[in-house]
């Protein structure tokens, strides 16, 4: 593990410190994006594509839970939410490409999030990686290589 040493002084171990803070910010943005999209869709034309719009709402809830859990350090909740998110973007992405008729209108996860520069696809992977990494920093100092500097 050739980790660059030197940023140990950051709030390592919490999920909302250092790079985690950026992650929370991005999750916050997506909560806003998915949530407002869902509200508009459900409020103005629910009958057109109820499945897609309910999925929008569901994804907004997932993003919201992940945001709060990461911000407050709830690892288990964050892990669950991000896992659901990853599964969601993969399943919805695949289905939306395989069967366009079933998804007449866009959700955040359609086409693996291509309407959002594929950030929805990358985000859960980064999130899971961050959860792993920040836990190592918090829990097990054995993982740290004996630093010679």
């Amino acid at each position: 593990m050739a980790e660059p040493a030197g940023k140990r002084s950051t709030a390592a171990g919490t999920t909302a410190g250092g790079p985690g803070r950026v992650l929370v910010a991005v999750y916050g943005v997506f909560t806003l994006a998915a949530g407002s999209r869902a509200v508009v869709q459900l409020a103005t034309r629910f009958s057109e594509a109820p499945v897609a719009y309910l999925l929008s709402a569901f994804s907004a809830v997932v993003y919201g839970v992940a945001t709060v859990a990461l911000a407050r350090g709830g690892r288990r909740t964050a892990l669950a939410a991000i896992s659901v998110e990853l599964a969601g973007v993969l399943v919805v992405g695949t289905l939306s490409l395989a069967d366009r008729a079933a998804f007449p209108d866009e959700t955040v996860w359609s086409g693996y999030g291509q309407g959002y520069l594929f950030v929805p696809l990358v985000l859960p992977v980064v999130g899971l990686w961050w959860l792993r990494r920040s836990r190592r920093a918090q829990g097990a100092p054995t993982d740290e290589p004996p630093s010679s500097s």
Binding site: K7, T10, R21, G28
Partner: peptide
């Protein structure tokens, strides 16, 4: 929504004592 973003970003970045605060603002 758009008027909330800079405010939220600035608040969230200000309470971060590391170099990652800048990236938070960049996201905003």
């Amino acid at each position: 929504g758009i008027v909330l973003v800079p405010v939220a970003g600035a608040l969230w970045a200000r309470s971060e004592p590391t170099r990652w605060a800048g990236t938070v603002l960049a996201v905003a």
